[in-house]
Amino acid sequence: MSDYTISIRPFGQHAILIEWPNRVEEAILEDILQFKAYLSAKYLFPEKWEIIASYNSLTLVERNFPIHFNVLKFNLNKWYAERNLIKVTRESYLWRLPVCYDKEFAIDIEEVANKLNTTVEEVILMHTKKSYTIYGIGFLPGFMYLGGLSASLEINRRESPRLKVIKGSVGIAGKQTGIYPQESPGGWNIIGNCPVTMFNPDVDKPVFVSVGDKVEFFAIEKAEYDLCVIENEAGVYTIQKNKINA
């Protein structure tokens, strides 16, 4: 694995930021996640440390005590240099999520198709044929920042955001696509709805996806959507997933 130039900077009394080059790149994300796995297995245990990976950065947050920046920076540089000496295995998954592109949910899909000089069918096809990488989780609990949108689906966010976008709405904006895990204000163009609950606070793992996982969408009809909603609420819906080699 190649070495990147990392920059380590202070982030208040309890946190420190490690930054990789300012690019959206799978190899960078992979290096970040491998280093995260190494740190939490060997040095910065989860009871005391939270490690948040996003695009080109890791943020390390200490739970209770102030950190000593210079000491930690010195150690992090040392640990980064040695990180490949011991292989820490990291599991990641490809998740296949159903999306209903029915007009009932896809309130912007015709406008999107018009603006992109294409058809609704083509928009659905382009959205479902790609595999997306989760570069970050934030904004809302369980909201995935998905990279890898087809260049032909790139479109600006709506001029004025909606005050209310319903739970499960699937949107596109710029180079990104994503699912609103709860009702929220939002400025993305809504092209469908995913009936799978992306955030469930009542279980041990409230969010089943992790940064570095991949997501694919497949189209379902309204009837299948309704069934999926019921299965989801009853807790019997099985999400399609495959382990991918990290």
């Binding site: 208040g12 930021l17 695009y55 934030g138 920042y145």
Partner: peptide, 10 residues
């Protein structure tokens, strides 16, 4: 900048 972590007090 690319989306990155924020904390209370940022």
């Amino acid at each position: 900048m690319l989306t990155s972590a924020t904390l209370p007090g940022t």
